[in-house]
Design a protein around this nucleic acid. Structure first.
Lengths: 337, 337
DNA sequence: GTGAAAGCGCTAACAG
DNA sequence: CTGTTAGCGCTTTCAC
């Protein structure tokens, strides 16, 4: 591996001169600059970023932690983050927590010891608090993505879970449904709590009584949920519509519904948060509240870099990205009983 | 940021002792070990990986370069890579080339200067050769993923493109189709060439004459392709089936088919390589040759780490992962004319 | 314009 | 079992 000294020797100058050429700092005569550059090329010199980082105390490395690399919401987000990072001259370290606070913890440790300049963090849930505290204790800037964690002060990029849930619920109500089940994420995740709130608001607004037994909770990544969905539909007056708090929950629910002979949307309407695919798809089936996943990542990185470079305001910023309802086939008007 | 020296001072010992405690090397009395550990915890000490890397000449960082972070094939692959990396104690730097050799080049430069221990590389195509050469010139181990690049000697994890294509084509033939279009990727990508070969072999085997005008090429990421698909179907004797060389091509084709009033599978059967979604899906529609994307990533990292740690054989290894046909609705028996 | 010296945080090699 | 010295590849600071 060729170093700055090898170049300096061949170019008959000091390491400092070479360093200045590399970084375009200070005054250098055109002649020496050219000589040094030629030799660098000739010797295939590539600067050692780590050595540099060690002295300048900055790595130009950012970390992106997502909870499910398999979910198109997060891959689209990752794509946005990747683009933004590239544009701003940062590299991205990727990790996937699988919604596990423990995996998160492991990763936080490696992140800290890697001395990344900042972390873009989609937390597993409220239990991520200690992990986040660990980061803040080391003064590593954080931007929280998608989910808020009570007790953490930092910049945020969120979706409008409450409004979205309200809108989606009202959409179902508009289709004639009054018995609407909510298959929610864990209540230890802020988005799940807000989606419940939005759901309840929509019911109230339409004078529909809230039925406890129409609510169930499951893991956001969960695809297998026969028991849970079974419970929801066992009642005398089973729901005619189901609102799933995210895409994977909806998928699991549909599968489970099909297994018990219920057709979607004929027997049960289904709608959810987030698109099911990253790109477009042949013939989208699911009625969804679509969130601008790409922007979550892109803006998140922008905010993070602003903060790192001291261009951010003192106070914490909270960006709420709007979502949009796409009415499709999975949610249909209620059939006359 | 607290350093080894801060610990050493408080613990009343040398930096070396602290270092030994951290790395669990050499002999240390239980008493000093405990004292040092307590102080490390108390001061929230986190080792500085870069400083360490600088001296041990190893970063424990791997780079994963994929061509389309939006494609479920690659995200699933990334998940496999991520899991393997974690299990083996490596971190993963992620990048997305968007099938662009230029983006690839940029990334290669940062990868080299980051001194990653190895690169897991899904090349954009044959033109990636100079980028790969750059890496090998720096003696950075590479494992090539999914696509081969003529002129590059390294470990490989590939799918069985020829066999898969042959199998898929024969499946279509078995359904009664004889006029089968091939919507292929760019011929500068090894998988596209092999898929063409497999397609041709299947035709030969079934005494179907090869029709030049049934072949078209497009970008693997392409979703918009009206002109291309139009050309394929303008003939007097339009194809009754279409074999798309990857999932996104199939999606684009279907959309374009629908726009010209052709229904799938009623008017045209469609089948392709790779699943359309990372996870399971409600009611899979597309007939596909599914590749074990997760294994591409997992095994790729394993091979890479083996190579890095000198556990790999001298000769280059070439792993061919088998694929599997899933017959679904998008490809149907040919209707009597 | 250019260079010499010192040090970023850590560990290898050797000494005791 | 523990410490000393030197140096990984680079940049900061100050001197010329």
């Amino acid at each position: 591996m060729v170093t700055i000294y090898d170049i300096a020797e061949k170019a008959n100058c000091s390491a400092m001169t070479v360093s200045r050429v590399i970084n375009n700092t200070g005054r250098i005569s055109d002649k020496t600059r050219k000589r040094v550059q030629d030799i660098m090329r000739e010797m295939n010199y590539v600067p050692n970023t780590m050595a540099r980082s060690l002295v300048v105390q900055e790595t130009r490395l950012l970390s992106l932690l997502i909870t499910d690399i398999t979910n198109p919401f997060y891959t689209t987000l990752a794509r946005g983050a990747e683009d933004a990072a590239r544009h701003l001259g940062y590299r991205l370290l990727l990790a996937n927590s699988d919604e596990s606070v423990d995996k998160e913890k492991d990763y936080i440790d490696t992140v800290i010891s890697t001395r990344v300049d900042g972390v873009l963090f989609a937390p597993a849930g409220d239990q991520s608090l200690p992990n986040l505290k660990k980061l803040t204790k080391q003064k590593i800037p954080i931007v929280l993505l998608d989910r808020e964690v009570p007790g953490v002060e930092c910049d945020l990029v969120l979706g409008d879970s409450k409004e979205g849930a309200k809108q989606l619920t009202e959409h179902l109500i508009g289709l004639g449904h009054r018995r609407i089940a909510l298959l929610n994420g864990s209540s230890s995740v802020s988005t799940a709590r807000l989606r419940l709130t939005g759901y309840i608001e929509a019911l109230k607004l339409n004078n529909i009584t809230f039925t406890e037994s129409y609510i169930a909770e499951a893991d956001y990544r969960k695809a297998e949920m026969d028991g849970i969905v079974g419970g929801l539909f066992q009642s005398e007056e089973p729901p005619t519509a189901l609102f799933a708090a995210n895409n994977f929950l909806a998928l699991g629910a549909i599968r489970s519904l099909q297994e018990r002979g219920l057709r979607v949307p004929d027997d049960v309407s289904v709608a959810c948060f987030d698109e099911l695919e990253a790109g477009f798809v042949v013939d989208p089936f699911m009625t969804v509240i679509a969130q601008p996943a790409y922007d979550f990542g892109y803006m998140g990185i922008q905010m993070l870099v602003d903060r790192i470079q001291g261009k951010a305001p003192e106070s914490w910023r909270r960006i709420i990205l709007p979502s949009r309802l796409h009415s499709r086939k999975s949610a249909a008007p209620l059939q006359g009983t």
